[in-house]
Protein backbone atom coordinates (compact mmCIF):
# COMPACT_ATOMS: atom_id res chain seq x y z
CA UNK A 1 0.00 0.00 0.00
CA UNK A 2 1.43 3.36 -1.05
CA UNK A 3 1.32 5.91 1.75
CA UNK A 4 2.89 9.25 2.50
CA UNK A 5 4.17 9.50 6.06
CA UNK A 6 5.29 12.91 7.30
CA UNK A 7 6.96 14.05 10.50
CA UNK A 8 7.08 17.58 11.93
CA UNK A 9 7.64 19.65 15.03
CA UNK A 10 11.00 17.96 15.61
CA UNK A 11 9.87 14.33 15.17
CA UNK A 12 11.76 14.26 11.87
CA UNK A 13 14.97 14.25 13.94
CA UNK A 14 14.11 10.66 14.87
CA UNK A 15 14.15 9.67 11.18
CA UNK A 16 17.48 11.10 10.00
CA UNK A 17 15.87 14.57 9.65
CA UNK A 18 13.75 13.44 6.70
CA UNK A 19 10.25 14.93 6.90
CA UNK A 20 8.42 13.30 4.02
CA UNK A 21 8.55 9.55 3.41
CA UNK A 22 6.79 8.00 0.43
CA UNK A 23 6.49 4.42 1.55
CA UNK A 24 5.12 1.12 0.42
CA UNK A 25 3.71 -0.79 3.38
CA UNK A 26 3.01 -4.49 2.92
CA UNK A 27 -0.13 -5.65 4.69
CA UNK A 28 0.61 -8.14 7.47
CA UNK A 29 -0.19 -11.72 6.49
CA UNK A 30 -3.84 -12.66 6.72
CA UNK A 31 -4.83 -9.02 7.23
CA UNK A 32 -7.04 -7.29 4.74
CA UNK A 33 -6.97 -3.75 6.02
CA UNK A 34 -4.06 -1.75 7.29
CA UNK A 35 -4.82 0.15 10.49
CA UNK A 36 -2.94 2.98 12.18
CA UNK A 37 -1.85 0.44 14.78
CA UNK A 38 -0.18 -1.63 12.04
CA UNK A 39 1.34 1.49 10.52
CA UNK A 40 2.81 2.63 13.85
CA UNK A 41 4.53 -0.74 14.26
CA UNK A 42 5.79 -0.53 10.68
CA UNK A 43 7.10 3.01 11.24
CA UNK A 44 8.95 1.98 14.38
CA UNK A 45 10.71 -0.81 12.51
CA UNK A 46 11.35 0.98 9.26
CA UNK A 47 11.53 4.75 9.75
CA UNK A 48 12.46 5.58 13.34
CA UNK A 49 16.24 5.53 13.61
CA UNK A 50 16.76 6.72 17.20
CA UNK A 51 15.04 7.36 20.55
CA UNK A 52 11.78 5.48 19.76
CA UNK A 53 10.46 6.60 23.16
CA UNK A 54 10.26 10.11 21.71
CA UNK A 55 7.69 8.83 19.24
CA UNK A 56 5.81 6.01 20.92
CA UNK A 57 4.44 5.28 24.36
CA UNK A 58 2.90 1.85 24.82
CA UNK A 59 1.21 1.00 21.54
CA UNK A 60 0.28 4.59 20.70
CA UNK A 61 2.08 7.87 20.04
CA UNK A 62 3.61 9.62 23.06
CA UNK A 63 1.80 12.53 24.78
CA UNK A 64 2.29 15.77 22.84
CA UNK A 65 2.18 14.13 19.42
CA UNK A 66 -0.76 14.73 17.10
CA UNK A 67 -1.49 12.05 14.53
CA UNK A 68 -3.34 13.23 11.44
CA UNK A 69 -4.83 11.09 8.71
CA UNK A 70 -5.50 13.09 5.55
CA UNK A 71 -5.31 16.34 7.54
CA UNK A 72 -7.73 15.12 10.18
CA UNK A 73 -6.98 14.40 13.85
CA UNK A 74 -6.96 10.61 14.30
CA UNK A 75 -9.21 11.05 17.37
CA UNK A 76 -11.95 11.78 14.80
CA UNK A 77 -11.17 8.80 12.56
CA UNK A 78 -10.85 6.02 15.13
CA UNK A 79 -7.36 6.46 16.56
CA UNK A 80 -5.40 3.18 16.43
CA UNK A 81 -8.28 1.48 14.62
CA UNK A 82 -8.36 3.97 11.76
CA UNK A 83 -8.14 1.99 8.54
CA UNK A 84 -5.84 3.35 5.88
CA UNK A 85 -6.35 3.42 2.18
CA UNK A 86 -4.11 3.67 -0.85
CA UNK A 87 -2.41 7.11 -1.15
CA UNK A 88 -3.42 8.26 2.33
CA UNK A 89 -1.27 10.94 3.94
CA UNK A 90 -0.40 10.34 7.58
CA UNK A 91 1.25 13.18 9.51
CA UNK A 92 2.81 13.10 12.96
CA UNK A 93 3.43 16.47 14.59
CA UNK A 94 5.03 17.18 17.92
CA UNK A 95 3.42 20.12 19.66
CA UNK A 96 5.67 23.17 19.94
CA UNK A 97 6.01 25.35 23.02
CA UNK A 98 8.50 27.96 21.91
CA UNK A 99 7.78 31.56 21.13
Amino acid sequence: MQLTVEFGGGLELLCSSVKIHNVNVELPKGVEKLTMKDLLAWICTNLIKERPEMFMKGDSVRPGVLALVNDCDWELTGQLDTTLEEKDVVVFISTLHGG
Binding site: E53, R62, P63, G64, S94, G99
Partner: peptide, 20 residues
Protein backbone atom coordinates in the same frame (compact mmCIF):
# COMPACT_ATOMS: atom_id res chain seq x y z
CA UNK B 1 -8.65 18.31 25.29
CA UNK B 2 -5.87 18.07 22.73
CA UNK B 3 -3.00 17.33 25.10
CA UNK B 4 -4.47 15.71 28.25
CA UNK B 5 -1.04 14.41 29.28
CA UNK B 6 2.00 16.70 29.17
CA UNK B 7 4.81 15.65 26.88
CA UNK B 8 8.10 14.37 28.35
CA UNK B 9 10.38 17.28 29.21
CA UNK B 10 12.92 16.06 26.68
CA UNK B 11 10.37 16.79 23.95
CA UNK B 12 10.00 20.44 25.01
CA UNK B 13 12.70 22.16 23.02
CA UNK B 14 13.31 25.84 23.54
CA UNK B 15 14.39 28.61 21.19
CA UNK B 16 17.45 29.25 23.38
CA UNK B 17 18.63 25.68 22.79
CA UNK B 18 17.25 24.71 19.41
CA UNK B 19 17.17 28.10 17.71
CA UNK B 20 14.38 29.78 15.76
Amino acid sequence: CLFPTPPPTTACQRCSDSGV
